[in-house]
């Protein structure tokens, strides 16, 4: 079981953002995706999560082609993601933001909800306890009932992760989760990511903090100008002359 991009090409007008890029994300692994600005990391993430359609190649879960599946359908296949700039609902509470992740598990339709049928109550209780546990888990116990617009940057990042996990994903795609965090917070993030891996979730980590990526990833893929220049274990990638030349520097 895996989420994969196979020889994926993506063009924006005359610009080829990705050319025949492949990447496989397995459950229970942390896969780092690094590369200079403009190398196509976020484009690949948007292709995997369904915001873009590939111009060539395909996105697949196991052997099923999901290139044309909408973002919503992919959420149904167990793909969750966070955003480079956290996208929360500022007027809702932290708990409500996390519970939003459980949208797909709420079985009650609009009319059942309007008439508050028993199923609605049951859904609500189950979602609430799941969201609360996750919020305690990622370290937001202190802010559960706070309005999301009152959160500081790090709290927003962790809340996005909790919302993603509330989707009960098989794969979670993290877009620069360490951006703007203090070293201590990055340690917490690392611990949270390890727990996700041990629970069998596949984690794709798009990140600029290369130390962090090398420390925590099982495998690393390096992109440059829309093409894969090296993939392998952190040690292999770290020592690759091409990676050092275009990205890490001597």
């Amino acid at each position: 079981m895996s989420l994969s991009a196979r020889d994926v090409t993506k063009r924006f007008g005359g610009l080829t953002a990705l050319a025949k890029v492949s990447l496989e994300l397995k459950p229970g692994e942390v896969h780092g995706l690094i590369g200079p600005n403009g190398s196509g990391k976020t484009t690949l993430l948007n292709l995997l999560s369904g915001y873009y359609r590939p111009d060539g190649g395909m996105i697949a879960i196991d052997e099923t082609d999901i290139s044309d599946a909408t973002v919503q359908k992919r959420a149904g296949f167990g793909v969750a993601r966070t955003f480079q700039k956290p996208r929360l609902l500022p007027t809702l509470s932290v708990l409500d933001n996390a519970m939003l992740g459980g949208w797909r598990d709420a079985r009650a339709g609009f009319l059942s909800t309007a008439f508050c049928l028993p199923q609605v109550k049951a859904d609500e209780l189950a979602l609430r306890s799941r969201a609360e546990e996750l919020l305690h888990g990622v370290g937001l116990s202190h802010a559960i009932n706070r309005r999301a617009n009152l959160l500081e940057h790090a709290e927003q990042r962790f809340l996005e992760i909790a919302r993603g996990l509330a989707q009960r994903p098989r794969f979670i795609l993290l877009d620069e989760p360490a951006g703007g965090l203090t070293p201590a917070e990055i340690e917490h993030l690392g611990a949270v990511i390890r727990v996700m891996r041990e629970s069998g979730v596949g984690v794709l980590l798009v990140e600029h903090h290369t130390d962090f990526v090398f420390r925590i990833s099982d495998r690393v893929t390096t992109l440059d100008v829309g093409a894969v220049i090296k993939r392998g274990t952190p040690d292999e990638v770290k020592r690759d002359p091409e990676v050092i030349r275009v990205y890490l520097g001597a």
């Binding site: 999560s49 369904g50 915001y51 909408t70 973002v71 919503q72 959420a75 149904g76 969750a80 993601r81 955003f83 996208r87 929360l88 609902l89 500022p90 007027t91 809702l92 409500d96 519970m99 939003l100 992740g101 459980g102 949208w103 797909r104 709420a106 009650a108 609009f110 909800t113 309007a114 008439f115 508050c116 609605v120 859904d123 609500e124 979602l127 919302r163 989707q167």
Partner: peptide
């Protein structure tokens, strides 16, 4: 009726549609 819609999953989904359609899509709304 509207209060029931607003305080449950549907209400959160609607607010997501209003404040961040990208988020709404990501969670499957």
């Amino acid at each position: 009726l509207t209060w029931n819609v607003a305080r449950h999953t549907w209400g959160r989904g609607l607010v997501a549609v209003r404040d961040s359609a990208v988020t709404a899509q990501a969670v499957g709304v």
